[in-house]
Write a protein that binds this DNA or RNA. Structure first.
Lengths: 184, 184
DNA sequence: CTGTCCATGTAAGGCGTTACATGATTGT
DNA sequence: ACAATCATGTAACGCCTTACATGGACAG
């Protein structure tokens, strides 16, 4: 379960509430690990039981208590252990590719529409990634933790290069469908 | 739920048992849609209820009945409808990138080992994909359904180009970690 | 006679999503 | 007056995985 370790990672930077964590995810790793709110709370409960984090409870009369989570030494050890542990190959599921796989049932028009839509989606994603990347480029000079920062930003690079590859493939596919050149 | 439609896709080629389908998945789309046996059986039950497939029951005394599934016209319609329907953007989860994101906690050695392992895994995958692709290249000339065949094979191309992009990124990352050049 | 193939499923549990529910504070 | 932000959670459901269970046929 990687959500667990991603949460430990964020808590290793600073203590946070579940709400803070949700924002941290959305701001940084959501492009390769979208996290959902209710699950963050459930995972935090689990981490507390396992002794990887502790709760600092802030009572707020009339409302539910606010809870600030702190990582324990145990939690830091577990994080480091996991970071250097090879992960088993991950199953990868891409429904869009199923559509292409059975694309023989679609007309050229339908097929090209399908591909063009996908291109539009990816181009939008890339525009966002590029913008964020540019922002990081400005920031990096003034940072003390250059190495750690660089590594975290490199995951965005991954997003950019893999989306570019997908885009090139889609464009070439449209071209070949249009020209009827079905050579491999 | 795309498994449903992938199954309909295979049944549109020919009737099959759950067992046959499992093999069909493993042989063709497992690189972007690994399917698991128990789920295939459950999904087939659902498809039957929905009227997209029918069961031809072969009784085998002493053993569980064998069931051959046939797609109905309703099922073909549903397949076509789904194939041309835009899919909502898919959440994408890659735990390896979480490891890189928090890679600041690892030493250069640990980090490079992590990246090198990933490179090895991808290179192996690519070797397999390339081999299968070469096999298809030989086959395509003698096929009548060139267009449909071409489209199904193009999903393998996707696997190849996206893995190549990942590989290039990993190599560049190792290089930069080694040289301590943390520029973006 | 051991293992692999064929062929079916059930059970249990984890991960993840969507929807719902509460309530104070701050900004427009 | 209304919406957004802060902050917590529960409930229900669906997808997917892992493990387990059965049993004939056939090949080495």
């Amino acid at each position: 379960m990687s959500l667990k370790h991603a949460i430990l990672g964020f808590l290793s930077f600073r203590p946070a509430t579940g709400y803070d964590l949700k924002k941290a995810f959305d701001r940084s790793v959501s492009h390769f690990w979208p996290a959902n709110q209710s699950q963050i709370y459930r995972t935090l409960a689990g981490l507390t039981e396992e002794g990887y984090v502790t709760q600092e409870i802030i009572e707020r009369e009339e409302r539910l208590d606010a809870k600030i989570y702190h990582i324990t030494q145990n939690g830091r050890d577990e994080l480091h252990r996991w970071l250097s542990t090879p992960l088993p190959p991950q199953p990868f599921r891409e429904p869009f590719l199923i559509q292409v796989y059975f694309g023989g049932y679609l007309s050229d028009e339908e097929l090209i529409a399908l591909l063009a839509r996908q291109i539009a989606v990816i181009e939008q994603t890339l525009a966002v990634y590029n913008q964020i990347y540019a922002m990081y480029q400005e920031q990096i000079e003034s940072r003390e933790d250059v190495r750690a920062f660089f590594l975290s930003v490199s995951t965005l690079e991954y997003g950019i290069v893999s989306n570019r590859a997908a885009l090139a493939w889609l464009n070439s596919l449209i071209e070949r469908v249009r020209s009827g050149n079905y050579a491999l």
